[in-house]
Design a protein around this nucleic acid. Sequence first.
DNA 1: CGAGATTCATGTGAAGTATACCTTTAGGCTTAA
DNA 2: AAGCCTAAAGGTATACTTCACATGAATCTCGTA
Length: 410
Amino acid sequence: MGNDDLTGFFEKFLKKDTLFLDKKVLQSAYIPNEIKHRDIQINQVAHILAPALRGDKPSNLFIYGKTGTGKTLSIKHVSEKLLKVAKEKGTPLKIFYLNCKLKKIADTEYRLIAQLARLFGKAIPVTGLPTDEVYSTFFKVLDSEEQTVILVLDEIDQLIKKAGDEAIYNLTRINSELKQSQISIIGISNDLTFANNIDPRVKSSLSEEELVFPPYNALQIQDILKNRAETAFKKDVIEEGVLAKCAAYAAREHGDARRALELLRVSGEIAERTDKTKISIENIDEAEDKIERDRILEVVETQPKQFQATLYAILLADTSAKRTKGQSLIFTGEVYELYKTVCDKTNLRPLTQRRVSDILAEQDMLGIINAKVISKGRFGRTREMSLAVPQSLKPKIRKILEETLDLAIN
DNA sequence: CGAGATTCATGTGAAGTATACCTTTAGGCTTAA
DNA sequence: AAGCCTAAAGGTATACTTCACATGAATCTCGTA
């Protein structure tokens, strides 16, 4: 493309009017003024947290609910209002929000506490410090002034699954030591069954109050969509039935409103890019496809080298496996053999099978493969897995991996 | 023929190791009085 | 003498390895009908 073409393209791009009025309304970080269909929950949260305004310690709260049921949104909404009132009254109240799922941020006890201390403006190194030391630093800042602190730990189930419940237990007990300040914990979990496998002591101290966020039904999602679409899009750019279909898609997946909004936003982007003046129903299908692709590619690209090598081995196994019933089933041993040859080609130091086994388990968690442990009777026991990736995406993944792993393409 | 025993390939837990990084400390050098 | 810098010492978290044991159904074994 010549330079003139490019200039032309940019000019045209600027002239072309967009379908969006305010795209950020559809992004997941956006907090609308009015949250629909969550009045009851928001009220309950408000009631539970209100004592903070009088300088009392609010009860610890545990919130359950599937993804996209408005948990985070509701909490953030209440927090905002609460902080505003507290500020007017001059009550020393702080609310911190921390997502435990983020790798390398809060997925171990050390990292969680370190991150908390950082929120209070303390610099904590990534490693090297005793965990106790970090605790006491955190403790000191916390107690350095009279204040009430509310700590929101999102996706706390992930943390406990990876790092155990020690950290949470310590956090809940820290109150008895605090002289000036007090801390309440709000735990948010997507996994409704996860309470069963944590220490009962932790559970009881964490869930002084419990709240369940039920999924939205299709009508509610549609209502939410309509509401947001009004401010997000220009008038009349949405074709009849589009919102309904978005809602239906999302409701199919346990009423995930976040997904519905994302679908709508991406549909809009697609329509815009293809120079349409309206968002049509077909765009939704394309959007769903694109979202899934982007998610997978994102995961593939950002994984550590060893994970990528493992994934590449799976990919190789997948293409060579005899294709029975459409789904090719792959076993650990097979993957590990291929993995070793991959390492050989890429000058990567091969990890042990023990470690690879863990890596496979993590890939399963990431949803990039489907795996389950089965016993093949006389023929041992293994993890039976298959790539959870659309066929059309495999070549692309392969290419990405070959590039990042610097594999000689044969 | 069927109940147990056996077997295989790998899952999985625990403990140990390597690496990268942190703080503290002691020595050496510089500086200012 | 005091202050400052540097390098070594001592300590930690994390990712990974090593070791050892656990799993669980297909297959085998062998007593019994």
